[in-house]
Simulated scan of single mutants.
Amino acid sequence: MATLLNHPLNEAAPTSPAKENVVEIRGLKKAFNGFEVLKNINVDLKRGENLVVLGKSGQGKSVTIKCIVGLLKKDEGSVKVFDEEVSDLNDEELKQLRTRIGFLFQNSALYDSMTVRENLSFPLTRVLKLKDETEINSRIEEVLEGVGLLDAIDKMPSDLSGGMRKRIGLARTLIMKPEIMLYDEPTTGLDPITSKEISQLILEMQKKYKTSSIIITHDMPCAQITADRIVVMNDGEYIAEGTYKELETSDNELVKAFFN
């Protein structure tokens, strides 16, 4: 049964003792130029689950995940990742935390002047400081095989389709072996067939790498394919939580709008 969160207090839903929370957010508020984008966010991400944040464009869905990795600073509340308050971390500690978190941007953020191989080796040599060419090439080939693009290893990003660039962006993130994956509108700009392929790939990567993921989207087929649990965002707050099937039968008009 879907849970309608107490609006406007937006109380946190009870957490299951069976699974550890890798992210815990309580009372998160964030404003820009006096406009309150996040009003009172409470949410947990459990180890091994795919959590979809569903909401219309311009609702501030991406602001939450940027607070999780410290790209944005909270105004109020608590953001804990692996039991550590993100705002308490110094620069070196924050850098270490980010090595455990993968962030797939909307545009894939590939380096246009580098081949696929060079794009994937970059975080290994610059962040992890790996020097063994055999290990580097082995890890590159492993992730490329995982996303079905081993034959693109020496291509330039300009030679790839939008869907292929998304896959390479995902491979570059997974090569760091993150424990948490953050997907920011992973199917934006893709045709329906490619969007479905990317959504299914997200599901496959969850099973293969045992990642815990937050997927920001307003793409309902993506939500249906990937979500273990969904929270619905409206006007800076989470107003409902449940599985896709539970929310599909919700009586809340704001929730029903996404499924009609």
Score class of each variant (00 low, 15 high):
Ser199Val: 02
Leu9Val: 14
Ile230Asn: 05
His7Tyr: 14
Asp235His: 08
Thr3Ala: 03
Arg26Trp: 10
Gln224Tyr: 09
Thr249Phe: 02
Ile175Val: 15
Ser62Arg: 13
Lys196Gln: 13
Val127Trp: 01
Lys30Cys: 07
Leu130Ala: 03
Leu9Gln: 15
Lys19Met: 12
Glu237Gln: 07
Ser62Thr: 12
Pro8Leu: 09
Gln206Trp: 08
Leu182Glu: 07
Leu97Ser: 04
Ser195Ile: 01
Leu128Lys: 14
Glu142Pro: 05
Asn90Glu: 09
Asp83Asn: 13
Ser108His: 07
Asp112Tyr: 11
Lys61Glu: 09
Leu247Gly: 05
Phe32Tyr: 15
Phe105Thr: 10
Glu92Gln: 10
Ala18Val: 12
Ala18Gly: 06
Ser78His: 08
Leu54Cys: 06
Asn6Thr: 15
Gly189Pro: 03
Gly162Asn: 02
Ile140Glu: 01
Val69Gln: 02
Arg165Tyr: 07
Leu160Val: 04
Asp228Lys: 03
Val231Pro: 00
Leu160Trp: 10
Leu128Arg: 09
Ala109Ser: 15
Leu144Gln: 11
Thr99Lys: 15
Thr188Ile: 06
Thr64Pro: 06
Lys56Tyr: 13
Val81Phe: 03
Val127Glu: 02
Val22Glu: 12
Leu124Met: 10
Leu5Thr: 10
Pro192Cys: 03
Lys166Ser: 03
Leu72Tyr: 14
Leu128Asn: 05
Phe105Gln: 00
Glu185Ala: 04
Met114Ala: 09
Met1Thr: 06
Glu145Cys: 06
Ile193Glu: 05
Lys29Cys: 13
Arg165Cys: 01
Ser250Tyr: 11
Leu94Met: 14
Asn90Gly: 04
Val79Trp: 11
Leu174Phe: 15
Pro123Phe: 11
Gln59Met: 14
Lys131Pro: 01
Glu92Gly: 00
Leu54Ser: 10
Ala13Glu: 13
Asn42Cys: 07
Leu120Asn: 13
Lys95Trp: 09
Leu110Ala: 10
Cys222Val: 06
Gly60Leu: 03
Ile25Phe: 07
Ala31Leu: 03
Lys39Leu: 02
Leu150Arg: 13
Ser199Lys: 03
Ile175His: 14
Met181Phe: 04
Thr211Asp: 07
Leu254Asn: 05
Asn119Ala: 09
Lys196Gly: 04
Pro186Glu: 07
Pro186Trp: 11
Glu204Ile: 05
Phe103Thr: 05
Pro8Asn: 12
Leu247Cys: 06
Arg47His: 12
Leu71Gly: 00
Lys19Asp: 08
Thr226His: 00
Asn119Gln: 10
Glu133Asp: 10
Gln59Thr: 14
Glu49Lys: 14
Gly148Pro: 08
Leu94Cys: 05
Glu197Asn: 11
Ile175Glu: 15
Arg139Ile: 09
Asp75Thr: 09
Leu72Asn: 09
Glu118Gly: 02
Pro157Thr: 11
Lys39Phe: 12
Thr15Phe: 13
Leu190His: 05
Phe105Arg: 01
Thr99Met: 14
Thr194Asn: 00
Ile225Ser: 00
Thr15Met: 14
Lys95Thr: 15
Glu142Trp: 07
Thr187Val: 05
Val147Ala: 03
Asp228Leu: 07
Gly60Ile: 11
Arg139Thr: 08
Ile25Lys: 03
Gln59His: 08
Val116Tyr: 12
Pro221Lys: 12
Asn10Val: 14
Lys74Pro: 00
Ser57Thr: 15
Arg47Trp: 04
Glu241Lys: 10
Leu182Tyr: 11
Leu124Glu: 00
Lys29Ala: 10
Pro221Gln: 01
Thr249Trp: 02
Leu144Tyr: 09
Thr187Glu: 07
Asp132Glu: 06
Glu49Leu: 10
